[in-house]
Design a protein around this nucleic acid. Structure first.
Lengths: 153, 153
DNA sequence: AATGAAAATGAAAATCAATATCATTTTACC
DNA sequence: GGTAAAATGATATTGATTTTCATTTTCATT
């Protein structure tokens, strides 16, 4: 099912600029990706896509994801001990990740003061800053309440 | 060559606690690792180790690195588009990484205010903070001077 | 609608880092 | 020295991702 959303337009513009073709398969994959819970792995997207496109291959999913990333619709995020996940990016503000080391819960956080300090720290070393990646690891409120056998970790 | 350093003692204590054996091969690998430039990949360590231990295998290097990490002597760091590198940890203070996106140069940085803010941000969300990972990406002073064809990236 | 060139696709093979298997060798202890 | 457990090295395996390549699809042009 096609949706006339702006993400699709971003993709179309990206393709047009490069004289690339549109394709039904890729657009279906994008639609599946956009509707899905955030932070899918390539394999999860592949599994979902196969419901609509039973013959789609891994390679096409990977190729599509690469294009989506190139046109700024998503971004790969690699957390520890996990396969790469892809995060929606378009019209989502920059944020960092707060990860629970017990249950894996992922919270998106943002602190402008932190952002400024990071920028400043880079500049202090003469760098022209482009971006950063911050992951905070800890135990989320729910897991803290539960306690558990590995409470001391 | 053996050195009576504390890192070796840390390893020996770790092994003793678990009733594991010492081994000449592993101690040589540790010595090579400690003397080397920081942030080696497993493969680089393997190449270096082979100079002293011509018959050593990849598996042993990986196994040794895992043990070194487990006993707190090093830590894997995974930067974007790079194989995992291992960073010396023992008696090294915590720091973040400032990475040049042009030449790959790696600078270790530290800012106590930043550290506090990160801690605080996690606590604000009810997390019991354990650690964090911050990577700052930008263009280093040298590469900025050089300019270059992809100056706008 | 038919054509043809370029792009996209899917299946399968290749790659690459990392891990597991297993027969052989070392270590620690008697 | 003998022995059981641990470590090793060679090799196979895994798992995610990329590449290859023959086939199909797209799209501008007839």
């Amino acid at each position: 099912m096609k949706t006339g959303n702006t993400e699709t337009e971003v993709l179309q513009k990206f393709l047009a600029d490069r004289r690339l073709n549109r394709s039904r398969v890729r657009e279906e994959i994008l639609d599946v990706f956009l509707r899905a819970e955030r932070h899918l792995t390539a394999d999860q997207l592949y599994q979902l896509a196969r419901r609509r496109l039973p013959s789609v291959g891994y390679a096409t999913v990977y190729r599509s994801l690469k294009i989506f990333c190139d046109c700024g619709l998503c971004r790969p995020i690699k957390l520890e001990n996990e396969p790469v996940r892809y995060e929606h990016l378009y019209r989502h503000d920059h944020h960092d990740h707060l990860v629970c080391t017990r249950c894996g819960r992922l919270v998106e956080v943002f602190d402008p003061t932190l952002e400024q300090l990071q920028e400043k720290l880079g500049r202090k070393h003469g760098f022209q800053m482009e971006r950063h990646r911050l992951e905070l690891y800890g135990i989320c409120p729910e897991c803290r309440k539960k306690g558990g056998p590995d409470d001391r970790n």
